[in-house]
């Protein structure tokens, strides 16, 4: 599903040049659950942003479902992203002004799903995430665990092929964290590919494979049994 080769990303300021990704090459198959680990500043978030088509690489190749997307413009990237990729963030990133229902509905609005269908799909996913009873609440009225469940619901509402999770349990206690990890595992078992950046060895153990990074390069891959 994902095939990147010799991918480079360099951040330049007037005086400093920081290599975030140094000719990195990774493959991710459809249905895989991959964890990316490494110390702060090793480039894992940059990698995730490029995989999520939020950022573009300076050099190298990025094939998404066998299509070269490294040189896609913003519009094409946004289009590909909204139909194929769901995101889960450490800090949930829900819109404070929108209710739970409206937050989950948002990706469907951007993909142009009709109002009736939207309602049905949002209710289905909220039900699945066991957060239906909170549908009219605002994010500030929810616990961290509930907020992350909403974020996961929002990530999956469009039935994406790929979910990118950036430290999804980073802001949660262990019990809520485990709940979110179980949700992700369930999704993966239903066929969704998941790539997760994490600092937690415990969370990483939920994955099939751990890619360890250092200074913008992959240094080790562990296959989980």
């Amino acid at each position: 599903m994902i095939k990147i080769r010799d991918l480079e990303k360099i951040y330049r300021t007037e005086e400093v040049e920081t290599v975030a990704l140094n000719k990195i090459s990774i493959d991710v198959k459809e249905g895989e659950f991959v964890a990316i680990m490494g110390p702060s500043g090793c480039g894992k978030s940059t990698l995730l942003n490029i995989l999520g088509l939020l950022d573009d690489p300076d050099n190298g190749s990025f094939l998404f479902n066998n299509i070269e997307v490294a040189n896609f413009n913003e519009r094409k990237r946004a289009d590909l992203r909204k139909h194929n990729i769901g995101f889960v963030f450490q800090s949930f990133n829900l819109i404070d002004e929108l209710t739970v229902f409206e937050n989950v509905e948002l990706p469907l609005i951007y993909t142009g799903v009709k109002s009736g269908d939207r309602k049905k799909r949002v209710e289905e996913v909220l039900d699945k995430m066991q957060i239906m009873h909170r549908r009219n609440h605002y994010p500030q009225q929810l616990s961290g665990g509930q907020q992350q469940r909403v974020a996961v619901a929002r990530a999956v509402v469009n039935n994406p092929k790929l979910i990118l999770a950036d430290e999804p349990t980073g802001n949660l206690d262990s019990s809520n964290g485990n709940e979110v990890m179980t949700l992700l595992t369930d999704l993966n078992e239903q066929g969704t590919t998941i790539i997760m950046v994490t600092h937690s060895e415990h969370d990483a153990r939920y994955s099939h494979r751990i890619i360890r990074m250092l200074d913008g390069q992959t240094v080790l891959e562990n296959i989980m049994v």
Partner: peptide, 16 residues
């Protein structure tokens, strides 16, 4: 900016 970021991540384009 956070809200704008989220909307963009979720597929909102510039004109939207």
């Amino acid at each position: 900016s956070k809200e704008v970021g989220i909307r963009k991540v979720l597929g909102g384009n510039r004109s939207q």
